[in-house]
Design a binder for these strands. Structure first.
Lengths: 104, 104
DNA sequence: GAGTTGTATCAAGAATCGTTGATATGAGAG
DNA sequence: CTCTCATATCAACGATTCTTGATACAACTC
């Protein structure tokens, strides 16, 4: 539980940046190499590399070297897991929703 | 699209903190007043208030005043919406997944 | 009204994160 | 082996964000 919470925090933190969300959107459907990411997102190369590292460390993406090029791809299980956890939170809330539990 | 991205960023940023995730877990199922939150989470009162403000501004929770007490509750639609967006990302990825789109 | 209680805001220090430029690594080309 | 290219790491700065203590506000009690 503690560990899950920590993991969730690092996932959400990784998602909490516009550049990184745009990277994830570009990765939907297929592997993309860093050069293509750099072409579309107009940011400095070391910065892109840094954001990719954040996504990698959170487990949201995977990297694969192909000669000189690095290809990044989405890990759909991690994304799905997080989405499912949020949906579960919402449905648990609606189910357990006892209308009038007051506390004070 | 731009606006959605910004909104998503602020939601994920709000979720990217252990204390705030614990608050959300406590809010599953029923309204909780600040005094109860303060009792369980062992943090200073102004800090709790600050985290609640962050959650409020992101739209994840709603506040209701009842006399001297403030009661906070989850907004399940926002949570569900975000969970659905993540799940959609994952399923889009698996569907569109053309196996060999190389770029470089 | 004055006092008390629950919560929010403010100001300031500490820690973290995003950004940049310089440099390093790793792999193919010549 | 050297050169070049794609990407990663490092060091430093600026900007947010977390945290704390002091204070303000809002509502109830007396």
């Amino acid at each position: 539980m503690e560990q899950r919470l920590d993991e969730a925090v690092s996932l959400y933190r990784a998602l909490g940046d516009e550049t990184r969300l745009r990277i994830l959107q570009m990765l939907v459907g297929s592997e993309v190499c860093v050069c293509d990411l750099a072409g579309e997102l107009e940011i400095a190369q070391p910065l892109l590399s840094h954001h990719l590292k954040t996504l990698r460390e959170a487990g949201l993406v995977q990297a694969r070297r192909d000669g000189r090029w690095m290809h990044y791809s989405l890990d759909p299980e991690v994304v799905e897991g997080l989405g499912g956890a949020l949906s579960k939170l919402a449905s648990d809330h609606r189910e357990r929703g006892a209308p009038d539990i007051k506390c004070c």
